[in-house]
Write a protein that binds this DNA or RNA. Sequence first.
DNA 1: ATGGTAGACCTTCTA
Length: 259
Amino acid sequence: MRIATWNVNSINARLATVEKWVAQEQPDVVCMQEIKCIDEKFPAETFERLGYNVAVHGQKTYNGVAILSKRPLEDVRRGLPGDEADEQARYLEAVVSGPKPVRVAAIYLPNGNPVATEKFEYKLAWMKRLEAHAREILAYEEPCALVGDYNVIAEPRDAEHPKDWDGDALYQPQSRAAFRALKWLGYTDAFLEADGASGAYTFWDYQAGAWPRNNGIRIDFALLTPQATDLLAGCVIHRDVRGWDKPSDHVPVVVELTC
DNA sequence: ATGGTAGACCTTCTA
């Protein structure tokens, strides 16, 4: 089973690009972030025509996540547990049915900039809630992939110019520590495990020629439970998609599990 | 040191 994650930066602005890639690659599952629309405005029919079931957790203008799956989706959960007052649509979880069911979550972790504002506090609080929920999922002892835009540069190797990010929420010691705490609960970074190449990025800013200069960062991850890690067959960053017409600033990451 | 782009949408906010 091939599971993709992609921050599309508006599904409606990106529809032609996303449809082209999905039709070409035919992943079994596609987790999207930043769809930037309410559920009713998500172009579900486009993907249903390609043979996908669709689950959406959207909101107006900002954020929003979705899961496409060729196999039926069960036990769909909308929103990250731990704060009933949180109205930002950043988490969607479902079980992909089949002989070997796999739990999948689409994650759009808060950016958190600028630092020293309530936005950074919200990021850290959200990461605490994610850690608590990820701990619960580990206790299920089942294959699960937590995929998405984590908005964290975990290590210097994950940036072309790490020093440029010193004042940024994505590279703060607190952000990196929170990511480390999450991962060390017992999750595996699928790309590092399967590939491990340095200089492999998933995001290049639209500004200042970041793409032609390869001024990128790796912030889109697939974190796997031990039971999913046992099934890991590969992980590929679809770098070339950043050079397509009307690209997102993120590219798809595809993790393959043998099931 | 600054500004550079993209998207949603009403004028500025988010990234």
